[in-house]
Design a protein around this nucleic acid. Sequence first.
DNA 1: CCTTTGCTGTTTATGCCGTACACGTAGTAG
DNA 2: CTACTACGTGTACGGCATAAACAGCAAAGG
Lengths: 276, 276
Amino acid sequence: MTQDPDHAVELLWREREREPRQGLSLDRIVRAAVELADAEGLAGLSMRKVADRLGFTTMSLYRHVPGRDHLVDLMRDAVLAEHPEPAAGGDWRTRLEEVARQAWRLRGRHPWLAEIRGTRHVPGPNAVARYDEMLGALTGTALRPSEVIAAAGLVGRFVDAEALLLVETRREERRSGVSEEEWWGARDSLYDRLDRYPALSHLWEAGGWDHPEDSFEFGLARLLDGIEALIRRRDETRDETCRECGTRLEPADSGRPRVYCSRACRQRAYRRRQTG
Amino acid sequence: MTQDPDHAVELLWREREREPRQGLSLDRIVRAAVELADAEGLAGLSMRKVADRLGFTTMSLYRHVPGRDHLVDLMRDAVLAEHPEPAAGGDWRTRLEEVARQAWRLRGRHPWLAEIRGTRHVPGPNAVARYDEMLGALTGTALRPSEVIAAAGLVGRFVDAEALLLVETRREERRSGVSEEEWWGARDSLYDRLDRYPALSHLWEAGGWDHPEDSFEFGLARLLDGIEALIRRRDETRDETCRECGTRLEPADSGRPRVYCSRACRQRAYRRRQTG
DNA sequence: CCTTTGCTGTTTATGCCGTACACGTAGTAG
DNA sequence: CTACTACGTGTACGGCATAAACAGCAAAGG
């Protein structure tokens, strides 16, 4: 019974019901779970602890939530509702950067977001909204549709990976009372053996580890640069690809340059202009 | 007792001893654990199962290995010994790309590598060798030392993130017998609600999901492009930064252009030329 | 009115997990 | 021979998710 994605869809997209005066409810469970995960991370989130926090037995939760996995899905969509600032206008780069930074900040507040694993999480309305914002930042560009999607996924995964790194170090630091720097500084028995690695030694002597780059800032800048390079390349050949689906255009028979690859694409574009 | 990093260093960097004719040994345990993790993933790796596979009791393992975490460290360094092809010559980009692809292929053979979490894993000799290769690909460039390190980390984390994605989908597909495509294709109850997300709908109608990009290839290309852009920028200002530590140079008093920012840096460079 | 039905929370139990601890046993150095 | 060490074992504890049967209660139907 742990596997009913359609049930998950219903829970995620359900209308918010009013809370009962007493007793459990889905929203109360989700809120308690979010608090717990904020404090102890996703690994520290257990059905027992959530139930304890609410003053009920463990199994009582299962009357409202199909299981732990679904609970995490619900938690995700709950916190993804925060900060609904509408995306500002501007060129694609500033917009995409802003969306990435918002995702980053959100993971600062709820680090467990980056710890969620698995590829079959049904998105709720807020997850889709965030995704749409990211896609929206890139849709105006010369990128092909599949490239827009790939780029959004790339940036999203980057943010998660960096956030994961950060939360892991932070939690370990809090747990052990030893900072990352102190811990690695005490690994003399390791450093004694690193002489015969040339690049490592060179960088060490050059002070490469003295003032490390901010890995989120550095990575984000490289990523945006990389996407920009592709967009520039696509811009150069923009007139040779279908404006709707991005496939390469056959050379036009007549003198007039073609814009769409097929009647279907032209009509799709036209219809959208009417409705949107 | 589970926390003794120096003990981990000793185990990882120990000389390989000859195997006993019978009974357990560290290497036998590590090999069995690798086989198990290859088949069932890191989550499916348990001390019980490793012991069963070897025909011993669970607790016998603890005579040779401090605990599960250390075992994983040992497994990592064991498989990182595979493929010791020396890095080929060439420009930085082809070298870095090749290192990334080797890491990618290795994670194809041992998907659990990407599942390892935590930031305080002591590297063994092979882990350091792989890291040194990646750093080495970038040391010839105009990047500053800290940027070389950041770029290597970025590429490394990218490979891990993509590998993690892949292994998660694959495992889920095998476990459930339903392919990712089929599973998402069956989520009609979800798609019914996605009309009011403009970018998403647009891309959907434009066929963006029909022929998706290969996310590893796409991401790697963008990343390399992004790093290339930075290198080009640094190349332009190469003569204005210290050749040793990369900080900006004060304008020279005399007419002759400066090369190093300080006597210390000049001496470091000189000494390295003598020894290396 | 009483009874039936369904919702909610509880109790108990199963099968995983890592590993602490006390115990045997066999080989070896003194 | 003895004491010591290395190695393997058995038992036990506390943690986890969750299946299954059960109890109370409120609304619905007769």
